[in-house]
């Protein structure tokens, strides 16, 4: 048996070897742009109903769609060990595109529920206990492809759902209909009276179960964390409007001042009933102009 090595074959082999020494395009490249940092949880043990928590980087703020406007990390592997003494410290490293990212935070999700912008554990640059809100934005470009030490302090206290608030919502006027009509309404519970768009980040709980086009009074019953709520309101968003056009159309108000929000303290394991308020669709498109000075209700 012979194995002929002909000149053409030898020439071809040499050609292949020479070609192998050349550099050429290899197609898709790794993405060099990253945002990295650490999430530092407080010492509290995560509640049993927390399914997962992830770092979320907002491509736009506020995000219109939580699936497409946020970049999520893998689920954070936080510690549920009740005997541990050190707070959880977890590192994250996310690939991003060049651009400006208005906010980086940590969201949590309840078992069986979808992601909710109200379920925030922490935001880069914000200290919830101080009551001031100024998230720090991140700029990624060729000059600064990697943003490191984007650290977030996360508090499990914000997942607290140890009380219940319930009441009736009465509807006045006609729901906006048709293609320009209602997209969503939600009851929101705030520890402060929101004065700016960013103040909406302070929301402690959100209930989106209010049925659309409801005519008769609707009874809501929402799990919240104990504490004081200074603003409980129903928000409305139209189909063709942006997230900036969310409008307040009704809120829990002082009995003798329909434009002044009434504060509501809720103790742990308490159910506060009769927290009723009226929604008036005739206030659209501007919405209700409520008083923001934070004064108490007049007796």
């Amino acid at each position: 048996m012979k194995f002929p090595i002909s000149k053409p074959l030898l020439g071809l082999t040499l050609l292949l070897l020479l070609w192998g020494g050349c550099s050429y395009d290899h197609g898709i490249d790794p993405i060099p742009y990253r945002i990295k940092g650490t999430v530092i949880f407080d010492g509290v043990i995560p509640p049993w109903y927390v399914r997962e928590a992830r770092v979320a980087i907002a491509k736009r703020f506020p995000p219109e769609n939580l699936a497409t406007d946020l970049i999520y990390s893998d689920p954070l592997q936080f510690n549920r060990d009740t005997l541990r003494t050190e707070p959880d410290t977890l590192h994250y490293d996310l690939v991003v595109d060049p651009g400006t990212y208005p906010a980086v935070g940590v969201l949590w999700r309840k078992s069986g529920a979808s992601w909710d912008i109200a379920n925030i554990l922490g935001i880069y640059g914000i200290d919830f206990t101080g009551g001031s809100l100024s998230p720090k934005q991140i700029v990624i470009n060729d000059d600064h492809p990697i943003a490191d030490s984007v650290n977030v302090f996360a508090s499990w206290d914000l997942t607290k759902r140890d009380a219940i608030i319930e009441g009736d919502i009465t509807f006045r006027g006609e729901w906006p209909q048709g293609t320009e009509g209602t997209e969503i309404v939600a009851i929101a519970f705030f520890p402060i009276i929101p004065k700016t768009q960013l103040d909406f980040l302070s929301v402690k709980a959100l209930d989106i179960n209010v049925p659309l086009f409801q005519k008769t009074p609707y009874h809501y019953r929402t799990a919240v964390g104990s504490g004081e709520y200074k603003f409980i309101a129903l928000f409305w968003k139209g189909r063709k409007t942006s997230i900036f056009d969310i409008r307040t159309i009704g809120f829990y108000n002082c009995p003798n001042d329909p434009l002044r929000p009434k504060p509501l303290p809720v103790a742990p394991n308490e159910t506060k009933s009769g927290i009723d308020f009226t929604v008036d669709f005739s206030t659209l498109p501007a919405g209700v102009n409520f008083k923001k000075d934070g004064a108490d209700c007049q007796q």
Partner: peptide, 17 residues
Amino acid sequence: HFRDLIEPVFVADATSF
């Protein structure tokens, strides 16, 4: 020339994907 071609789509609205 096709009519009523079936194509999968991904829809992102305000509350879901």
